[in-house]
C-alpha cells in the first residue's frame, strides 16, 4: 500500500513539473508575441496619433502618445482637421488612382488568367517558348524601361490626339489619356506575374475534367468561361490583392508617364503634401499617408478569406 502511495506522489510531482514547464513556455511565447506585435504596430500607432493632433500644438509633443492636451500637458490637442485637409489635398489624386487601379488590376488579372489557361490547359506547339518569354517579362527592371516608356507614350503613340476626340463623352477629360497610358503600362507589366500565379493554379486542375468538357461539346473559350474561370476565383483574390497593392503604391511609372498636372495619382500628391517653406506639417502628412494606405487595407479585408484559400490551394 505504502509503495503504491509513494508511486502516486512521484507521478503527481512529475506532472506538476511538466505543468510548470508548459506554463513557463506559454509565458515566454506570449511575451515574445506581444513584443513583436508592439514592435510592428508602434509606427502605425505613432502615425495615427500624429494624424489626429492639432498641427498648431504638435511641435514639442511626444508623437506616440494620444493628443490629450487639456488633461495631459505636452501631448498636443486633439483635432480631425489634418484628415479633413489631407482629404481635400489628396482628393484629385485619389480619384485618379481609383481610375487607374481598378481597370489595371482587373485587366492584368483577366489577361494573365487567359494567358495561363492558353499556355497550360490548351495543347499547341511551342507553348514552352512563349511561356519562357512571359517569365522573362517578370525580370525586366522598371528602371530599364523608363526612357523608352516616355518616348513610347509621348512620341510614338498619338494617344493624346486620339483622346481629344473623346472629350465629348461625359466625365472624360483630355488629361485622362495619361491615365490610360498608365493603365496599359501597368497591365502589361502585371501580366507576366499574373500568368505565373494562374499557371501554378491551372496545372493542378484535373486534365480529365477539361477533357470531359471537351467531349461534352464545349469549345476552348467555353471551357474557360464556364469551367476554368469559376474555379479560379480564389486565385483571382490573390492576384487582385497583389496587383492592386502594386499599382496603387507605384510612384515610378506615374512620375514617368503622368509627370505632373491634373492626372497626378495619389502617390505623386502625397510627395508634396504638407511641405512648405515654413516647415513640415507632420499631422497633415501622417493623415495623408493613412488616407493613401486605406484602400489597400480595404482590399485585403474584402478579399482576405478568398486570398487565404488561394494561397493554400
Amino acid at each position: 500500500m505504502s509503495g503504491a502511495t509513494s508511486d502516486e506522489s512521484a507521478t503527481t510531482a512529475t506532472s506538476d513539473e511538466t505543468e510548470t514547464r508548459t506554463a513557463l513556455n506559454r509565458v515566454v511565447l506570449y511575451a515574445v508575441l506581444v513584443g513583436m506585435a508592439v514592435f510592428y504596430l508602434i509606427p502605425i500607432e505613432t502615425g495615427l496619433m500624429t494624424a489626429i493632433t492639432d498641427p498648431g500644438t504638435y511641435t514639442g509633443s511626444t508623437p506616440y502618445l494620444p493628443p490629450l492636451e487639456p488633461l495631459v500637458p505636452g501631448t498636443g490637442s486633439f483635432s480631425l482637421e489634418p484628415f479633413g485637409n489631407a482629404f481635400d489635398g489628396l482628393s484629385r489624386g485619389l480619384v485618379n488612382s481609383v481610375i487607374l487601379v481598378v481597370p489595371a488590376t482587373i485587366l492584368s488579372g483577366l489577361l494573365g488568367s487567359m494567358a495561363a489557361y492558353g499556355l497550360t490547359n490548351v495543347d499547341w506547339r511551342g507553348q514552352v517558348g512563349i511561356y519562357a518569354l512571359f517569365i522573362a517579362g517578370i525580370f525586366i527592371p522598371y528602371q530599364a524601361v523608363l526612357v523608352p516608356l516616355t518616348q513610347f507614350w509621348y512620341n510614338v503613340v498619338p494617344l493624346r490626339t486620339m483622346f481629344v476626340a473623346l472629350t465629348g463623352i461625359p466625365f472624360v477629360q483630355e488629361y485622362h489619356w495619361k491615365l490610360v497610358a498608365l493603365i496599359i503600362t501597368h497591365t502589361a507589366y502585371g501580366i507576366p506575374i499574373c500568368t505565373l500565379l494562374f499557371r501554378a493554379h491551372y496545372k493542378k486542375l484535373s486534365s480529365e475534367m477539361i477533357e470531359a468538357a471537351r467531349l461534352d461539346g464545349a469549345s476552348v473559350s467555353t471551357i474557360y468561361r464556364r469551367i476554368v474561370l469559376p474555379l479560379s476565383i480564389p486565385m483571382f483574390a490573390v492576384v487582385f490583392i497583389y496587383q492592386f497593392t502594386q499599382v496603387w503604391n507605384d510612384l515610378l511609372f506615374a512620375l514617368t508617364i503622368v509627370q505632373f498636372g491634373e492626372a497626378s495619382v495619389v502617390t505623386q500628391e502625397l510627395v508634396g503634401i504638407g511641405v512648405s517653406q515654413s516647415g513640415t506639417n507632420f499631422p497633415l502628412r501622417m493623415a495623408a499617408a493613412m488616407l493613401a494606405a486605406f484602400p489597400t487595407l480595404i482590399v485585403y479585408i474584402l478579399f482576405g478569406d478568398k486570398f487565404a484559400e488561394g494561397v493554400t490551394a
Binding site: 477533357e211 471537351r214 467531349l215
Partner: peptide, 16 residues
C-alpha cells in the same frame, strides 16, 4: 471530340 457524339466516363469521374 465535341462533334463525335461520344460520351466518356473517366476514372476520376471528372465532375465539374
Amino acid at each position: 471530340p465535341a462533334d463525335r457524339n461520344i460520351a466518356m466516363v473517366f476514372q476520376s469521374y471528372a465532375l465539374y
